[in-house]
Design a protein around this nucleic acid. Structure first.
Lengths: 266, 266
DNA sequence: GCAATAGTGTCTCTCAGACATTATGGT
DNA sequence: ACCATAATGTCTGAGAGACACTATTGC
C-alpha cells in the first residue's frame, strides 16, 4: 500500500516537520487489525434504452436498511478477484448478463456514513446493454426493473444509500462519452440503422438531432460504423428501407459529436 | 452496502436461477470478520510544471517492499474521514501543500496482488500545484522529488507497486482535461500571461502551439481567463511586456481546445 | 537602429446547423 | 396517386490552422 514511504520524515523542505504525527498513524496502518474493518463493494449502473428512454436497472431491496427501496445492483468484492471481475460477477448474478456491451469504472464512493451498518467503500461501475427482447417478463416480478432516468432526475424516485449520486454520475459520464467516443453503438444490437443510432443519442441527451446532419456526421467519422451492404427488410412498415450497419473499429470520435444542450448554456 | 438486495432470488426473468449461488457469498458478506481484511488507501499524483516540463512528485521508499524505489505519495484512509479528506491529508503530510490548485479522483486500483503483503485497494487521485519557488531545497534531500514524466514514459524509471499505471492514467487524464476544461490555469500562479498558459499546454501535450491562434482561442473562450488590466513589469527582459490575467469563472471550455497530437493519429 | 516578445489581421479550409431535394418503400 | 422514412445536396456561418503584420519594450 505504498505507505511506509512516509515513515521517514515527510519533509525535505516540502513539508513542515510534525513530530511523529505522520509516523504514528502510518505505521499503525501496516497492521490491518488495528483498524475497524472496511468493506469494499462494487455497484453497477446498467443502462439501456427502451421505448426511446434511457433507463437504468434497479433492484428492490428486501432487507433493511432501506428495505423496499430501490437500489443499484452490487455486492462485496471477494478475495482474489479484481474489481472488474467483481463487477462482472455481480452483473451476471443479478441480471444474467455476462457480456455487457460496455463495462467501465466510474468513481469510488467512500463517505464514512454512506452505509449505516459499517464502513463500506464502493467502486461504481457503469455498463451498457442493448434493449433485449426479454427484459424482465419472467417468473418473478417487481424485483429488478429498468427505470427511466427521468424518474430519478425529476426527484420522483429516490434510491437507497448514496445511489442517487452514483446513478447521476453514471448518466453524466454516458452523456459525455457519447460526444467523444463510439460507445453509442453499445446500446444497439449487432446490426442497426443510422436512425437507431440517432435515437440512442436523442434518448441519452434528450435532444432531437437533425437526421440529415447526423447521417453525414457518423458516415464521415472513420471507424464509427461500417456498412453491411444489406437493407432492413421493411416488414409492413412504410418508408424507404434503411441500410444496416455494425459497430466500427474506432473507439474515439475525432472531431467530437457535439451535444447541443451543452453549447446553449453560454 | 447495497448487497442484500441479492439475498433474494436475483432473477425476475433477467437472470437464470442459480440455486443459492448468489445467496451464499452475498449473505456472508454482511459479516466483515468472515473476510480477510482489506486495506483502503489513497495515492496522489501531484503534478506541476517546471523548466518547461510536466513533472510528478515521487517519494523514495525507505521500507520493503520496493525499498529504495520511487513511489507515489499516499497512505491508508482513516476511520471517519472521506476519501477526499484522506487525499488532502496525505498530500499535506507528505508535501506540505494544503491548498492544491486541483484535486480530483482518478480511478481505483484493486488487483489482489498489487501489494505483496495484504490486499489493498487504492483510490488514485491527481492534483495540480503551481511551480512554487521553494520546491524542495530544504534540510533533507532526495526524499521527495518532482520527476519529469518523460522519465516514466520512456521507461527509464519504474515505480513501486502499480504506480506506473496510476501515474500514466493521471497523465492521460490531465492531457484530456486540458482540452475540455479550464484546468490549465491551476498550473499557473494567480497572475499569469497568455504565454505562461500556452507553455502549460505545450508542456503537458508536448506540442508547440501557435502563439497567435492560442491567444485568439483563450480570449474568445468566455470565462477562461479574465484580464487584470496590468502588464508584467519587464525587468530587464526584452520584448513587449505581456498583459496579466487571472483564472476566470468557467470550468468548461466550449468549444474544446484541440490537442493536435490527437488528430494526426488518423 | 536591431532583437525579442506580445498581440492583431487575414486568408483558407473544415465542419456543423438549417433546410431543400431526391430515393425507395408501403398503401 | 399519396404517405412515410431514408438518404443526399446546398447554403451559410463559426472556428481552427497558417502566417503576415503591427506593437512595445530593452539594448
Amino acid at each position: 500500500m505504498e505507505t511506509e514511504s512516509s515513515d521517514e520524515q515527510p519533509q525535505g523542505g516540502l513539508a513542515p516537520y510534525k513530530s511523529g504525527v505522520t509516523a504514528g498513524p502510518e505505521t499503525a496502518a501496516h497492521d490491518p487489525h488495528s483498524f475497524p474493518p472496511v468493506g469494499v463493494a462494487v455497484d453497477i449502473v446498467l443502462m439501456t434504452i427502451s421505448d426511446g428512454e434511457l433507463r437504468i436497472l434497479l433492484i428492490r431491496r428486501g432487507q433493511p436498511p432501506f428495505r423496499d427501496a430501490w437500489a443499484l445492483p452490487g455486492g462485496f468484492v471477494q478475495p482474489n478477484e479484481t474489481l472488474d471481475s467483481a463487477a462482472l460477477r455481480e452483473l451476471a448474478e443479478e441480471t444474467g448478463i455476462t457480456q455487457p456491451g460496455h463495462l467501465a469504472q466510474l468513481a469510488t464512493y467512500g463517505h464514512p456514513e454512506r452505509d449505516p451498518r459499517q464502513r463500506v467503500v464502493t467502486v461504481g461501475y457503469w455498463a451498457i446493454t442493448p434493449d433485449l427482447p426479454t427484459p424482465k417478463g419472467g417468473t418473478d416480478d417487481a424485483y429488478a426493473e429498468f427505470v427511466p432516468v427521468a424518474e430519478l432526475e425529476t426527484g420522483r424516485l429516490k434510491l437507497a444509500f448514496d445511489h442517487d449520486k452514483i446513478a447521476a454520475d453514471a448518466i453524466g459520464a454516458a452523456r459525455e462519452e457519447l460526444e467523444r467516443t463510439t460507445i453509442a453503438t453499445r446500446f444497439c444490437s449487432s446490426e442497426f440503422t443510422i436512425s437507431d443510432l440517432r435515437e440512442v443519442y436523442d434518448a441519452v441527451w434528450d435532444t432531437e438531432l437533425e437526421p440529415a446532419n447526423f447521417q453525414r456526421k457518423v458516415k464521415q467519422s472513420k471507424g464509427f460504423i461500417t456498412p453491411l451492404g444489406r437493407k432492413l427488410s421493411s416488414e409492413g412498415k412504410a418508408g424507404r428501407p434503411a441500410e444496416l450497419w455494425t459497430a466500427g473499429p474506432a473507439d474515439k470520435l475525432i472531431p467530437a459529436l457535439n451535444n447541443p444542450t451543452q453549447r446553449e448554456e453560454l
